[in-house]
Design a protein around this nucleic acid. Sequence first.
DNA 1: AGCACGCCGACT
DNA 2: GTCGGCGTGCTC
Length: 824
Amino acid sequence: MDQVRLAKVALSAATFAIDKPYDYLLPAELLETARPGMRVLVPFGAGNRRIEGIILAIADGPQSEKLKAVFSLLDEEPVLDGESIQLALWMRERYFCTVYDAARAMLPAGLYFSLQDRYRLVNQADKEGAYEAAGRSDYARRILDLVYSCGGAAELGQIRGAFGAKDPGPALKSLVDKGVLILETSASRGVGDKTEQVASLLMPPEEALALVAPKRKSAPLRYAVVELLSAVGQASSKEICYFTGASTATLRSLVRSGIVTQEKREVFRRVAVDSPEPAGPVVLNGEQEAAFRGLDALRTGGKSAAALLYGVTGSGKTQVYIRLIQACLADGGAAMVLVPEIALTPQLLHIFTSHFGEEVAVLHSSLRAGERYDEWKRVRAGRARVVIGTRSAVFAPVERLGLLILDEEQEYTYKSENVPRYHARDVAKFRCARSGALLVLGSATPSVESMYLAKSGVYHLFELKNRYNEQALPGVYIADMRQELRRGNGTSVSGLLRQELEANLAHGEQSILFINRRGASRMVTCGECGEVPTCPRCSVYLTYHSANGRLMCHYCGHSEKLPAACPQCGGALSFVGTGTQKVQEELEELFPGVEVMRMDTDTVSATQSHEKLLSRFERERVPILIGTQMVAKGLDFENVTLVGVIAADLSLYVDDYRAGERTFSLLTQVVGRAGRGEKQGRAVIQTYTPENDVITNAAAQDYDRFYDEEIGMRSLRGCPPFRDLFVLTASGAEESRVLRVCMKLRRTLEGWLAQPPYDALGIQLLGPAPASVAKVNNRYRYRLTLSGKNTKSLRALITALVVAAQNDKENRGVSVFADVNPLD
DNA sequence: AGCACGCCGACT
DNA sequence: GTCGGCGTGCTC
């Protein structure tokens, strides 16, 4: 049997059910250049449509009839290294996504190709022949009309647009088959490499100066340019013009004279990070020093390790991180720091740039495509060895990874809600294990899973128990809102909180009030009939956005003008403000003339204004700041001595096993905002359930007790870390069909679970139940939940189930996917 | 998912 | 006859 060289390719067009490495013949002209990690254009399917893929491996295999050949390479260099390819394969097995989905998550959007299909007339002159070939087909004639009117070629998108809902595919195919049209596929990159001209001397400086010196008087600029280049050797053309006053014409004339050469060099677009003064050496206190030593011993221990750094708010975890990174860089390694949300951690970013300057690369989703792409390239080129970023930065192309820090590891933003539905903590573990790096999970309120693993010895545990500078913890008081109601106080400000606010106003100290609501956007309701406008496509209420004066849906993006009156009864509409605005109004009534600053999704649109608001709050000592979760994180203001939590239990009664953990963490963070300076801080927690354990433990800042109670509950209920929840979601336009698919899935599953080897897995099955938001974008969603140990065997079962569901003809119109420990 | 193939009704 | 609608099966 003849052996040929094959490329094993992961395809962008493959669905989960048919995803696997596909074998393609490598044509002779690509044999030398093709390497694993490069993207390729390949023919796929019966129609041989051109699609994008990525080479996973190159191997020899037997020649076969079935084999098709790679069309072309899309990259000159691999965009994924061997470890990343391994990671992509691992993610498919773990998160039930395609290999390409995983690869896509690893690459910056700027590297991403958009494929354009163009249909061109083979022989434009032969118009008659073309229409003859079209025959009686109305569609084919319309396509020809369009192509001719466009000058002989048209984009597929254009044709689709002209056809509306009708699919032009068959008619196009017939025209291509008859040789009238030809399909051209071009790949274009969204963001190009940015280059700049760099000039340098073609000869030794003395020689060059001697050449231009005689004409120094008549051509001073030429002389100045050569003088500058003699001094610095090489400079960008822009800079040369800037410093000497020369024009590009001067430079060109020097190039023509053979004195100077200009070449293109890639430049890296950088995010405007203020370049602070270089920071001095980090001084650690005894506790921090001990943690640093222990962690660094693990880092240099020669094999991969994971550690939990459990340090109370204000204990100075960042200092420890910095020392660890310094040590890692000194050993020639690179370090990564993941944070839950970059916009909320400007202070952290500032500290890191002050220590590591140009070595820092920032990667997060609100960067512009070009910026993100360039930061990615700086990392890949090894020019930035300290990567700071959000969830997706865990895929940064860092070589020689020595240290990976996941700050605030309990945050749920580390879990992706979109394909691929990965958890950055898991991916971080994988990467650290592969490269022998140290994984540090940092938190003031570790997730129950992580603490469990630390207590059972899987993670090394390090604790920072004291606040930096020996600051005392704020005094925490609980206000029982039921009593307030009984006393006739229907507002959201309790007597106690009011009293404390008054005290702060009298002393000129600042207060932060926190509303425990996610999103916290405003809704609209009719005062007459109680109607609340809902999204026509989703089962959620619409929220009001003051920026554009429209009602919007957070799920599908639907937006409509705010109606003047209730569409049902014509009554007057009013805003529902359990949120920040209502509290703001109540406070303004309570304290006339006192400025109350509001910070929520409504007042904050861009990162800019978020920071602007905060800096004004600090600078002008605005007495009261009120906001949603945004105010809970990472804010350190010396003059803030009082923190109030408006509705502490609001996040507690959610149908989610993490509700307690989330509430505890949130309350602890908020309370920690008080008294960061010299003065003693206070916190008031308002709740309708003052006896609730989570609330009392948070008030007492007693993590250990919270953990003990929570872990017992998790064990009892079969939640992580004891079991994982696998959620299968079916969605489709017809509710009855979706439900039927779900029931069938359950029956299939029950059948499988009754037999070996699955009967031994001890799996519990729940559902079908409607998803928490039952309809999104006119698609109904029902879910089936399995709980069990996250083993290879169980994952294989889920994979088989999803594949079977996707292949089942009866399930047409309904899509099925799986997610592990989803957010809701 | 998308595309071809194949079978069937409608219009020419 | 042949165009186009729709159900079925496969994708290196």
